[in-house]
Amino acid sequence: MTLRSLSSLLLLSLALAGCGDHSMSQQNRYSTFSKAGLFRDGTEAQPLPQGTVAQGDPERSRQITTPPAVDMALLSRGRERYDIYCSPCHGFSGHGDGMIVQRGFPAPPSYHSARLRSADAQHFFDVITHGYGAMYSYAARVEPRDRWAIIAYIRALQQSQHADVADVPELRSKLP
């Protein structure tokens, strides 16, 4: 083989080797939720060591004990969060007839029952936080402030099913 053909072969193999190098696109680090041989359970997602205080933890603790003031913004937030996390079972109007219940999940009690109408807000907060009966905890998915927002919206739902004509301004005059 001549020197020229050897050198061209070398160039070609160098060029092809470039295609097989993934050190930039797959760098030597773990990405979120990737397999990780370094840890005994084989996953990158490690539970927090005991006693860890995450950034914002004092604020979250404060939110647990101090319900925010109820305004329209909080109610809208509550409605949005309720529709995402609660409506699958409790239904959009809170009668406990959501889609998952229609598919066989045990029906939760209606928010419009006498017991839940008279239950205090802390009861709802505790149920969202810790679960109740067949209901799992939603603490990981619903932040404390959002739990209070959802409770405010549940109160609005309860009122919507027990409202008098007198509760709505000027409704009487519009009725036939």
Partner: peptide, 25 residues
Amino acid sequence: HASVEKARFAGIPPTETCMTCHSQI
């Protein structure tokens, strides 16, 4: 995908999320 509004990663649900419903159905 509960962290999609708060984080870079949208979140793959933990098994508990599946079992929220599939513990019963």
